[in-house]
Simulated assay, not measured.
Amino acid sequence: MNQKKKVFLYSFITVFLWASAFPLTKIAQQHFTANALGLVRCSVAACFLLLIGKMNHIKRPRLKDIPVFFLAGLCGFTLYLICFNTGIQTLTSATSSIVIAITPILTAVLASAFYKEKINWIGWISILGAFAGVLVLLLWEGIFSVNIGIVWTLGAACVFCAYNFINKNLAKKGYNALEIVTYSMLCGAILFLFSLLPAVELLKTSAPAEIASLIYLGIFPSAIAYFLWGKAMSYAEKTSEVTNFMFVTPLLSTVLGFIILKEMPNMGTFLGGAIIICCIVVFNLKGKQ
């Protein structure tokens, strides 16, 4: 298999696994709280990543970098999963995935502010258009009615932006993608320990299907997806060859939400989602200098 085919295969499997996390999270939350779900998902993922890391002979983190890994775990996994799990309780899989899809745009805005990475006028119009799409999602049911789930999900997108910057900093320190995600996930699981007792009690009374969804969320969308994403990046000539696959996630999560949960997005999701996805595509193609 040549490199281009590997990039396509690894990237598509990754976004499919990420898309599957939206409906599977809703299944798990029929029994588990947002925090308990986050703890179990992070713990399963951390154990699986440590196993993969052992097989790939990853190096241990330097002592001085451990606080940075805890910060990465806090933003990328602990706070992210609390916000994500809370937000999706009142959203369809489609709406949640569309809001999360604006993360690259938010990251680019922060990069413009802190790293002086330039965004041209097309980019700024695309950014404004994307947030107009978010307003459509927020206010579709009525101008005085704001879906709090979207606010929580926007929070998830924001904290994941912070993780992207910390990730970049750790990469500059010489850590590879597998090392970064493994130790960040482990730190995220440790920070979730405040939910240990409630999680144990919920596990005792959970049904087999709910436990299966937890194990799936920890191994596939968390551990394996991040590992394959790093592999795709290593084979790609350009980062965009991989990141452009993220545009497919909302479509896949919408289809999976319909198949698994019989969710039917409302017209606001279709209209707002179309605006957001179009603006993200234009931003990535034409918005950066």
Rank of each mutant, 00 (worst) to 15 (best):
14 T>C: 06
14 T>M: 07
14 T>G: 13
16 F>A: 13
18 W>S: 13
21 A>W: 07
21 A>E: 09
22 F>C: 02
24 L>Q: 11
28 A>C: 11
34 A>K: 00
34 A>P: 07
34 A>M: 03
35 N>E: 14
35 N>Y: 09
35 N>R: 08
36 A>N: 09
36 A>Q: 07
39 L>S: 01
43 S>C: 10
45 A>F: 08
46 A>I: 11
50 L>C: 10
51 L>C: 15
53 G>F: 04
57 H>P: 12
58 I>T: 11
58 I>W: 13
65 D>T: 09
65 D>C: 09
68 V>W: 04
69 F>E: 00
70 F>R: 02
70 F>M: 05
70 F>A: 07
71 L>Y: 08
76 G>M: 00
79 L>H: 01
79 L>G: 01
80 Y>H: 10
86 T>K: 07
90 T>Y: 08
91 L>F: 05
96 S>F: 02
97 S>H: 09
98 I>D: 01
100 I>N: 05
105 I>E: 02
106 L>I: 07
109 V>M: 09
110 L>V: 14
112 S>P: 02
112 S>Y: 15
115 Y>L: 15
122 I>A: 11
123 G>C: 01
124 W>Q: 06
129 G>H: 01
132 A>E: 14
134 V>G: 11
135 L>S: 14
135 L>V: 06
144 F>S: 15
144 F>P: 12
145 S>F: 09
145 S>E: 11
149 G>F: 02
150 I>Y: 04
151 V>F: 00
152 W>Y: 10
152 W>L: 05
155 G>M: 05
156 A>Y: 01
159 V>F: 08
162 A>I: 09
163 Y>L: 08
166 I>D: 14
170 L>V: 04
171 A>W: 08
172 K>N: 11
174 G>N: 11
177 A>C: 09
180 I>H: 00
192 F>L: 13
196 L>E: 10
199 A>P: 04
200 V>I: 15
204 K>G: 15
206 S>T: 04
207 A>F: 15
211 I>W: 05
212 A>H: 07
214 L>D: 07
216 Y>K: 10
219 I>R: 13
221 P>F: 14
222 S>F: 05
223 A>I: 00
223 A>F: 01
224 I>R: 08
225 A>T: 03
229 W>R: 11
232 A>C: 15
233 M>A: 12
241 E>G: 10
241 E>T: 14
246 M>Y: 10
248 V>M: 15
250 P>Y: 03
250 P>F: 05
252 L>I: 05
252 L>C: 03
253 S>D: 00
254 T>D: 05
257 G>T: 04
258 F>K: 07
259 I>G: 12
266 N>C: 10
267 M>P: 06
269 T>K: 07
272 G>S: 08
273 G>F: 01
275 I>F: 05
276 I>L: 04
279 C>K: 03
279 C>I: 01
280 I>F: 01
281 V>T: 11
283 F>L: 14
284 N>P: 05
284 N>T: 06
286 K>Q: 12
286 K>G: 07
288 K>F: 09
